[in-house]
Structures are given as C-alpha cells and as structure tokens.
Design a protein around this nucleic acid. Structure first.
Lengths: 162, 162
DNA sequence: CACACCAGTTGTCCTGTGCAACCAGGCCGC
DNA sequence: GCGGCCTGGTTGCACAGGACAACTGGTGTG
C-alpha cells in the first residue's frame, strides 16, 4: 500500500522526509549511469541542452549554461561536440557579434525526438502498473519539489524578465 | 491542491508520465552538483557508501558495489579514499581470507551523522510547507518508483533499441 | 579614446566511472 | 592433493564531465 496510516503527531512527516531524502539520493546517484547506458548517443546533459534549444527555439550558450547551472566552458565544449555531431548549428547574431545563436538542426531535432520517445517508453514501462491517480499525484509532487530549488527559482525569474 | 482533476480516459496518466520524466531528469541533472556544493567533505557516492555501511553494520566491497550499481573498481577506489580519510576501516574475514569486511570508524560515523543532519535540514526546509499527508504519499511513490528493478528497465530499453 | 564589461574558447586540473587485466584465496572434481 | 574454475579485490588505462582561470574579441559608457 502506498499511502500508509498518517500519525497526528508529525512523526510520520519526519519519517517521510527521511525517506524522500534517501530515495532522491539513491535515484540521483543512479540516474546518470542508467541514462548513459540507455542512450549512448546522447548524454543526460546533451539531452537537456537539445531539449532546451527545442523548447526555446534557439538561444545563446550563456542561456544554456544558466539553465543547466553549468559553467560556460562546459557548455561551450558540449555545444562543440553537438555541432561536430551535426545536431546543432550556430548563427551569428547580426545585432551583437559576440553572441552565437544556437539552433537545432533537422538531424538534431530527429535525434532529440527519438531519444525522448525512448525515454518516454522506459518511463511508461516502469510506471505501467500505477493507478492514474497516483501518477498524477506523483507528478504534482515532483513539480512542486523541483520548483523549490534555487536554480529553478532563478530560471523562473529570468523567464519573467524577458 | 497538488493532485488535480483526474480524467477518465488516461490522458492525465500520459501527461503525468511525461511530467515525471521531465522532472526526474531535471532533478538528476542537478543533484550531483548541488550535493557537492552542499557537502564538499563527502561526495554523493561516498555518502551513500557510508550510509549503507551504517545501515548494515559492516559489509564487503562487493555488496556496496551491488547496492550502488557501481563497478567494483570504483567502489575499491572510493573505499580506499574513505580509508585514507579515516572514515572506514576494514577487517579481514577469518572465515574467508579473500573478503575484507568494511566498518565505519567513529570519525566516519560522526561525519556521516553530520552530513545526514545537514542534508536532512535542507530537505526539511524544502518540504516545510508540505502537508504531512502529501509527504507520506510522496515518500511512498519514490520508494515504489525506485523499487522497480533497474535491470528490468535496461533490458526493456535494450529490447526496444534492437 | 580608454576602460569596464560580456560571450565564448581554450588550457589545465580533478573526480568519477567503466573495462580489462591481474592477483590471491577458496571450492570442486578427479 | 592438485589443477581448473570461481570470487573478492586492486590496479592500469581511458574517457567524460565539470570547474576555474586566462585569454580573445566585440560592446558600450565615462
């Protein structure tokens, strides 16, 4: 049974926080490796970068760095690799010659879609026995949890400023 | 309210799976770096290893590797570092001279407790506005999610990619 | 113009990780 | 009891990801 009895004194809440901590930790530890084995073609970071590019329809390397909370040098190298792989192209901004606006190429979009589909299938497989009600609640909890992260807050602020 | 209306046709379930995928990915991407910044003294892996050692009251390197889904060489090096740092000691098993039973030292236990407390505080802060009922349910969902065997998921993914 | 600032690249370093080769201790069948 | 196989662990090697700092070149402001 997923939702057990709830004590009135807050003990259950403390135990639950403990469990959340442990499980999130375990998950985080494992995720990267699993993702790598699942899609050798696209690392978790690369996937996120492409995803952000698709979502925003092109942006600067600096934006990607901010979004992923990565150093700009890391992003620069990741993007270089993606460009070498032909998944991303960059166009000089005529307004500001410092910036290189990054765009998904068609192969990039296809690769992203393929990996997204494969990830989605894996998640569906893993969650296939869950009642819909639990899925919806779980999704809601995750959104709420991640929304509390400082990086997310900054992102949200950045988005608001545009 | 976190869990919104539930449609009867499964659309909500699909959307929820999508959301879970996105949020888990975002979380995984960020977790390692955040953990590193939070506790420079103990990496996420080292923390998990010490935690498992405490939970089990000593075990073999191979058990740690299996538990964390890590290569034994990785564990060997991590353990070596922890031994150098004085957080872990090993005792030869008198029954089987191949195995080195690992134990937390007192400093190891203290360090683990300190980091656990700090992590716990961060989680409590982050979850402080959640109703107890939601905490308990969220914890249950995470346990259930992580309990789905990763091997199974990988196999399924491999089958799909062939 | 000079100087501060910003986007991006590159050099250097460190950590974490896996794979493969290897060593050493145990177990089994002959 | 002894060679072959299994198993726990260590080490060499390669590589990815990431940070930091130094640098280049474009922008803007006094």
């Amino acid at each position: 049974m997923i939702g057990e009895a709830v004590a009135a004194d807050g003990t259950a809440a403390l135990r639950a926080v403990e469990t959340i901590q442990r499980e999130m930790t375990a998950f985080a530890r494992r995720a990267r490796a699993v993702a790598g084995r699942m899609h050798p073609e696209l690392s978790l970071v690369a996937y996120t970068l492409l995803g952000h590019l698709e979502e925003r329809g092109g942006c600067r390397a600096t934006d990607l760095a901010a979004h992923c909370a990565l150093d700009k040098s890391t992003v620069s190298r990741q993007v270089a690799a993606l460009r070498r792989a032909g998944l991303v192209e960059r166009r000089a901004d005529p307004q500001d010659h410092r910036v290189q606006v990054l765009h998904l190429t068609d192969p990039g979009r296809r690769t992203l879609d393929r990996v997204t589909e494969s990830r989605r299938a894996a998640f569906r497989e893993r969650l296939k026995d869950w009642p819909e009600e639990d899925l919806v609640r779980f999704a809601g909890y995750l959104v709420r949890y991640n929304a509390a992260s400082p990086e997310q807050a900054e992102e949200a602020a950045a988005r608001r400023e545009e």
